[in-house]
Design a protein around this nucleic acid. Structure first.
Lengths: 97, 97
DNA sequence: AGAATTTACAACCATATGGTTGTATGTTAG
DNA sequence: CTAACATACAACCATATGGTTGTAAATTCT
């Protein structure tokens, strides 16, 4: 997921499709690159679970997935806890002295 | 920062140095790769602000930076808010009908 | 002073990534 | 039915990325 979010275009696609779903071609018009390039970005995001695609006739509605974002949040939260643990241990050490 | 966190070794270095600071060579012994490779990873993390280096004699103490993690948290939080906005708008639409 | 240690950095290599164009396939519109 | 459209995907290209080895500089140890 970090790898998928490492690209600015992809982050923007996530942001945009969180607000409201969009077809691949709608997304494609929004960026200064070919349709195929945007389509590949969407594929990467889908692979990482950051967006889902929902067929509707000949088009695919792309929808941002807030759950995936929350999973990253949780990972980062875990890191934060690790850090708090370090502080706690330093405190304990100081109190011993 | 996402790009820096996109590599598993680098995520592990962040995790490890959040717990307690370590020299570059201490880190290097922890991974199945050359010293130079680890040193480059640390440089990338430092460039992204995810760790800081503190000279101590001939060695450099590497320390994970919790503030950087919090900044990502905030970004993801903003995305979450965007999504909540969408839900709110959908609700408003339903209530109109 | 000289040897060993720790870091930095350059040069190089293989593969991944982000882009392109072209072609095929499924779906809607006339 | 045929034309147009939306998507998918392959092939290709330039650059980025993650790794290597080798060398140099700063610091510590004897």
């Amino acid at each position: 997921m970090f790898r998928a979010l490492a690209d600015a275009t992809r982050r923007d696609i996530v942001r945009r499709t969180l607000t409201e779903e969009a077809t691949v071609s709608q997304l494609a018009t929004a960026y200064e690159m070919s349709f195929a390039a945007v389509q590949k970005h969407v594929a990467v995001l889908e692979g990482a679970g950051l967006v889902t695609k929902h067929p509707k006739g000949r088009e695919r509605l792309v929808r941002g997935n807030p759950d995936a974002l929350r999973r990253i949040q949780q990972l980062l939260d875990a890191y934060e806890q690790i850090w708090r643990g370090r502080i706690a241990r330093l405190d304990a050490l100081l109190n011993e002295e």
